[in-house]
Design a protein around this nucleic acid. Structure first.
Lengths: 351, 351
DNA sequence: TTGTAAGCGTTATCAG
DNA sequence: CTGATAACGCTTACAA
């Protein structure tokens, strides 16, 4: 023969054709067997499987993706991976979705909408089966790309209007209101909110708003100081924030934090300044982190449905990917965990 | 004409050919422009870019990957995403590598070698440019797949013999020894180690071994109790572990923990039982977590080079992917941070 | 520098 | 149920 073809890359990889050859069938049959085993006769199926095993054949997902014009990849964008709350959610998503053959392509936006857009762009060029974003705040371009893509899109960890497709989360304003109400019911009359990166963390900002609203509604005082510690190591930032706050507003008797690490830092600072928690100041955090129930005093906090969000996304996505429709907004609620840092003798508490 | 071709999937997607057509050049020129812009004349380059912009062309990475038989994807397997230490490393890796056009495919093994193998298998079918695994412990099959793959492989967060390719991390036994030595130099004479999931967390196990070794070498006593709290919420498990330990071995005066959350839980328990830290018992944790320096007492701990590992992996990988060779073992060391939980009046401390 | 055309390893269509 | 065969969108030898 001497086929003087333009010799091309020589991939020694085992291909579907190799399997077909060895088992004496056509490549299409192998392909069919792989995708829908019951549409192939048992005899051939067995023979094919045998060939696959002996050759150690591994399907080339990229070729398949190209031919089928889709992948079993789901793009996920979270603000930060270091934040264990999102990590829990993603972890659970991976658990469920990987069982159904989906891979997660994960990226973090560092709380930047611009970064998010760039990630979405990259992910989209993998023709993902679906996309999952955190929050509802995106650039116009991100929205455009996603809307015109026709794939399922989930926005998680936040609820609101103007969803791209499906929202799964809870209301952060409600959280803020619940936190404030709890403090007020415990006897606090002068609240403050201390948060990290408030300028970029939209959800923390919403909780702050909730706190302020509750102050207005329940105390009639619109004055609720909101302090942004910015970036940097949170616990230390919280100490400084508390020091400042106490200097400028010594009558504060209740503080809500955007997360439990901040609350812990504040506890340390209070201890250092001889301020008693919760007698002088009651504290409520957010996140119910691993340590929150084990420090002294134990931190009252709000447990967001972090695992539940992941599970629910998996269910919703699997549903959508099978062609079913899914609710547009799924509220998973949250839980206020009252612990020592906000349990005062005064107040309306029972017992 | 009436080419009665088998009409196929109608992808309305903008392709490279569309760009070529609009800009009046061939597809290969567009391809070249995209990959090596300076090998295309300025005139054409401008025209091509213009076409790309007007059409909103997004390259199909899968087609490219198939043709080039490689992707700009790097597979990463960590034991857990919820563990913020690995998260920090991964976060930094993504930062550096995404700048060079690489995507991370992330998976967590839940500390199971079997799970890891399955992830490696899946990742490999994406023809990744490289793989990054955590630790040195893998199934035989995982090793085989990786060894025969000819792509760069990094094992991170641990050092040892028998590397697959490149190891980047530090010695956990050294950490254990350093922790024990510090306690002993502070006057402790009866040490214990409390760890979570020791049966599966090989690195924590190594630190425990290091502690025990140091006890033998420095105290001449081989007896160093090693307690595994298992899974479950760590801080609570730590409380129980300490309670048990104190009941059975009341003369313990120094405890090393496999992470700072455990240490924090123990602090709470000690406080509850009236045990003074560090006077009665000195504590050393691991991880230097966000809260470690801000609780009371501040937790002495070991800071692993979490960010550095990520940065170094990126550098090494980029190097390898350009065809250079890289050291086989890169030791990034660690830092012992002495804080209140282990600062006793007795001991050899200066000042 | 730019163009031509042969793959890359699958899946989808359609005929048997 | 099985098998040809034409895409899928791009890269890359090689020719011009």
């Amino acid at each position: 023969m001497s086929s003087q073809q333009r010799s091309r890359r020589s991939t020694k990889r085992v291909t579907m054709t190799d399997v077909a050859k060895l088992s004496g069938v056509s490549a299409s049959t192998v392909s069919l067997y792989l995708r829908r085993p019951d549409e192939v006769s048992d005899t051939l199926g067995r023979r094919i499987q045998e060939a696959i095993d002996t050759l150690g054949y591994v399907p080339n997902l990229m070729a398949g993706a190209l031919a089928a014009a889709k992948t079993r990849v789901i793009g996920v964008v979270v603000p930060s991976m270091v934040n264990s709350m999102f990590a829990s959610t993603v972890s659970r998503m991976q658990l469920s979705l990987s069982r159904h053959g989906y891979q997660l392509l994960l990226g973090h936006s560092e709380y930047s909408e611009q970064q998010e857009e760039s990630l979405v762009r990259t992910f989209m060029s993998w023709s993902p089966s679906a996309m999952v974003l955190t929050g509802l705040q995106h650039t116009r371009e991100t929205r455009r790309i996603l809307t015109s893509s026709a794939i399922p899109v989930v926005e998680m960890w936040e609820l609101g209007s103007n969803a791209l497709d499906t929202m799964i989360g809870f209301s952060h304003e409600d959280v803020g209101r619940a936190q404030a109400r709890h403090l007020i019911e415990s006897g606090c009359r002068r609240l403050a909110f201390i948060g990290a990166r408030l300028s970029v963390d939209n959800r923390a900002q919403l909780r702050a708003t909730g706190v302020r609203t509750a102050c207005r509604d329940l105390l009639g005082s619109a004055d609720c100081r909101i302090i942004d510690t910015g970036t940097g190591r949170m616990a230390e930032a919280a100490r400084e924030a508390l020091r400042t706050l106490l200097a400028e507003q010594p009558d504060v008797d209740g503080i809500v934090f955007s997360n439990d690490v901040l609350a812990l830092g504040a506890i340390a600072q209070a201890q250092a300044q001889g301020v008693r928690i919760p007698e002088d100041i009651a504290l409520v955090g957010f996140g119910d982190m691993d340590f929150s129930n084990c420090c002294v005093p134990a931190i009252s906090t709000v447990r967001p449905p972090r695992e539940e969000i992941g599970d629910r996304i998996a269910v919703a996505l699997l549903d959508r990917l099978q062609g079913n429709t899914v609710e547009t907004s799924i509220d998973l609620g949250f839980e206020l965990l009252v612990r020592e840092s906000s349990t005062r003798r005064i107040g309306l508490a029972t017992s």
